[in-house]
């Protein structure tokens, strides 16, 4: 655990010592607030749901942008050789990098607090969907983060890591959508529906906390983090 924390600290320092973290937060907060308020006054309903429904699409680009450097940069700089000859297990490296990205994401989401405050001031929103919305957003962000981290382990080129990350996240997001479900054989449809990131997101977003949704997200995160460890370990045998 000490090793994981050391890596988290190092990654966070790198994020905040360079402009990455600030650009990420400012652009994300500006864009999400603007998109939200643009519709908010037209609809005239004091609820956060339109805000949360933006998240799968904003994260699609923002999260791979955050994760693309985590491994690709280490390989490009060659520092991966230092990292992988430290007395640290491969899973600790992966976990440290994942958590660093996750913490940055959580800080950013905490900074969206003026939105629910504004909504609460203008109306009387239901707390269920609000809490569920944030929880779903955090879980989905974490899932994207794991996918993006995996994309970053397979290349030393950050641009490729970004694009592959976006494509994987997009694929995971839309497999559960109706349009995909129509085009696959009937017996596969339930499986595809279950695999889609978006479906679980909207059910948590309604304020319905179902353990199956949480298990689903944790499995996606676990699977992709495992794939990261597997890829990194495999490199030692090349």
């Amino acid at each position: 655990m000490r090793n994981v924390l050391a890596i988290v600290r190092k990654e966070l320092k790198t994020y905040f010592n360079s402009p990455i973290a600030y650009i990420f937060m400012i652009v994300f907060l500006t864009l999400s607030s603007w998109l939200f308020f643009r519709g908010f006054f037209l609809i005239g309903q004091a609820e956060m749901r339109p805000f949360f429904s933006l998240m799968p699409w904003l994260f699609l680009f923002f999260i791979p942008a955050l994760t693309m450097r985590l491994w690709a940069e280490e390989r490009k700089l060659g520092t991966v050789e230092i990292l992988m000859t430290l007395p640290v297990k491969d899973w600790e490296l992966v976990m440290g990098k994942f958590l660093a990205g996750f913490i940055l994401l959580c800080i950013t989401l905490l900074l969206t607090f003026p939105l629910p405050v504004a909504v609460a001031a203008l109306g009387d929103p239901d707390p269920g969907p609000l809490i569920g919305g944030y929880l779903g957003t955090v879980l989905m962000g974490a899932a994207y983060m794991a996918i993006g981290l995996f994309a970053s382990t397979i290349t030393e080129n950050q641009i490729i890591a970004f694009i592959v990350g976006v494509v994987f996240c997009f694929a995971m997001l839309i497999v559960g959508e109706e349009i995909v479900l129509f085009s696959v054989p009937d017996f596969l449809a339930p499986l595809f529906r279950y695999l889609g990131l978006g479906v679980h997101f909207s059910s948590i977003g309604r304020g319905v906390l179902d353990s199956r949704d949480i298990v689903y997200y944790l499995s996606v995160i676990g699977f992709f983090l495992y794939m990261c460890v597997h890829t990194i370990e495999g490199r030692r045998w090349r």
Binding site: L77, G78, T79
Partner: peptide, 12 residues
């Protein structure tokens, strides 16, 4: 261990 070409983090 000092690897070849002395790789280092640049941003910290």
């Amino acid at each position: 261990y000092l690897p070849e070409d002395n790789p280092l983090y640049t941003d910290i």
